[in-house]
Design a protein around this nucleic acid. Structure first.
Lengths: 163, 163
DNA sequence: CTATACAGTACCAATTTAGTACTTTTTAGC
DNA sequence: GCTAAAAAGTACTAAATTGGTACTGTATAG
């Protein structure tokens, strides 16, 4: 599908949300509530983010999670690496050498490696600081100028049952 | 997984193989044999490539498939578009507006649109001509045995974009 | 007329992904 | 210490997607 998985998508949501208050410690339950996601799902994502050292955890009462470093130093590539299958690669052959039985006959592997590098670089240049929710004024301004913008959602857009 | 599907991968294999002799018409069976893939699978991929007008088909005896235009004018993005789910997008929200119920609250969609554009651009700048396997000598040698072949390939098929 | 080869459809098996439940461990605060 | 909060860990099920194949129909060259 050339899609990131939903869990990775949740990861970016969670991380950008945390980036809006980088010093604060937030519990999984708080994040789940704020983002409209299931607690178990959020926990799963946070655990993986913790393993990748993108967040630090604090157990026990008043515990939770906190970003391990400034939002500007955390890229989308970091989140993808934490939550998607490793190693990075758009094709099996470009990710893992030796798996593909065509390998010896296949001469396009180098090109895939090149493409991967470009894609990865794209993900690496965007930090969650850049993605973090803008201040209110900016948000409003961003919305106004789009004339003829279609699909301004109706009242049902807020309806959400997590899970 | 941030992977292209296997069928898309096969698509690039098939297209680059066909690009090595752009004028020739090749049957699905011939391609399957050359690439070590199942005939039914190759047929499925070729059908999709045909729907996207990347190859043209000829039915009946001595029929087969042929590239619809010079290899230098067919990009990886074209193949991805033909074989992956449409529209292009790394996340559901960035591909289809109105699907995500978080949309109104989600402020990171713009960033994803930006990332998508960069990734797509990366795929668009690589043509199958650039990925095509063999050096000139090999290509010519592969051509000689086929007697009565119509259409002498011009030098333009070797055109490479500066990487 | 017949063999070849694409076109289309439908289907099944395998894999992957998403989500949930439950148990254990840690820790702050009383 | 006791208790409650919250992460860590494990296991499992259900759903969706993907990959591959079979079968029938249609066009065409010789």
């Amino acid at each position: 599908m050339l899609r990131i998985s939903k869990l990775t998508d949740y990861g970016t949501l969670i991380m950008t949300h945390m980036a809006s208050a980088p010093e604060r410690m937030m519990s999984a339950a708080e994040l789940a509530d704020a983002l409209g996601l299931g607690l178990a799902t959020v926990s799963k994502v946070l655990k993986a983010l913790g393993r990748a050292a993108l967040v630090v955890s604090q157990r026990g009462t008043r515990g939770g999670y906190r970003l391990s470093r400034p939002p500007a130093q955390i890229s989308i590539a970091d989140i993808v690496d934490a939550l998607e299958e490793q190693p990075f690669g758009l094709t099996e052959c470009s990710a893992n050498s030796g798996v593909c039985t065509l390998e010896s006959r296949c001469r396009i592997r180098d090109s895939w490696l090149r493409i991967n590098a470009v894609v990865r670089n794209a993900l690496q240049t965007v930090s969650i600081a850049e993605m973090t929710p803008a201040p209110l004024a900016t948000q409003l301004l961003e919305h106004i100028p789009v004339t003829g913008e279609q699909g301004v959602p109706g009242p049902d857009r807020l309806a959400r049952q997590p899970g």
